[in-house]
Simulated assay, not measured.
Amino acid sequence: MESITIAFIFEVWEGTYPLNASLEITDSNVFAIAGGQVQIQPAFPVAGATTPPLSFLNVGAGGLNLLAGPNPSSAAQGIEVVVPVLTSGNTLSLKFDYAQGEVNGFYQFAGSSRAALQIGSNVIAFPVLA
């Protein structure tokens, strides 16, 4: 198994619902979370956006879920979660979902542009490593 790092970006562009999201890996890849390798970073989709305080972030080998604190201002909010993946093939299959509001999900490998996650099933091709 090879390890590759991927960033997942979650954004809420308007509304008062708190930022929330879940990812479930649906193949044999796993998030490599040993040793505190998970990073949480701000993601600012538009001017004036904020990084919300987290109520919780759960990351396990089979996926992640998060919930931010309340968003009383309706301002855009965004957060980025960076995790290493132990690969077992050329793609990562996962399910993206959220509970309330409209959450926009993206993924990004180092040195590449971000790409959108669709609600439901997604298949992400790993970049070719030199």
Rank of each mutant, 00 (worst) to 15 (best):
F8S: 01
I9V: 11
E11K: 08
V12N: 08
V12L: 13
V12G: 08
V12F: 00
E14G: 07
E14A: 14
T16F: 08
T16G: 08
L19V: 11
L19S: 05
A21F: 05
S22Y: 09
L23F: 07
E24V: 13
I25Q: 03
T26S: 10
T26I: 07
D27V: 05
D27L: 03
D27H: 03
D27W: 04
D27E: 06
S28I: 12
S28F: 13
N29L: 08
V30I: 14
F31H: 02
A32G: 00
I33T: 14
A34H: 14
Q37D: 04
Q39G: 00
I40L: 04
Q41R: 14
P42Q: 10
P42H: 09
A43T: 05
P45R: 14
P45N: 13
A47M: 11
G48E: 14
G48C: 14
G48K: 11
A49K: 01
T50A: 15
T50H: 10
T51L: 10
T51Q: 15
P52N: 11
P52W: 07
P52G: 09
L54D: 04
L54F: 07
L54S: 04
S55Y: 07
S55I: 14
S55N: 09
N58Q: 12
N58F: 10
V59S: 04
V59W: 10
G60D: 06
G60E: 08
G60R: 05
G60L: 05
G60H: 04
G60Y: 06
G62L: 06
G63H: 03
G63R: 00
G63Y: 03
L64G: 01
L64M: 14
L64R: 00
N65C: 02
N65P: 00
L66H: 00
L67M: 15
A68Y: 03
G69E: 06
G69P: 01
P70F: 03
N71W: 02
S73I: 00
S73E: 13
S73D: 15
S74Y: 14
S74K: 10
A75T: 11
A75K: 11
A76V: 06
A76F: 03
A76N: 02
I79T: 04
I79A: 01
E80Q: 14
E80P: 00
E80S: 14
V81S: 13
V83W: 09
V83M: 15
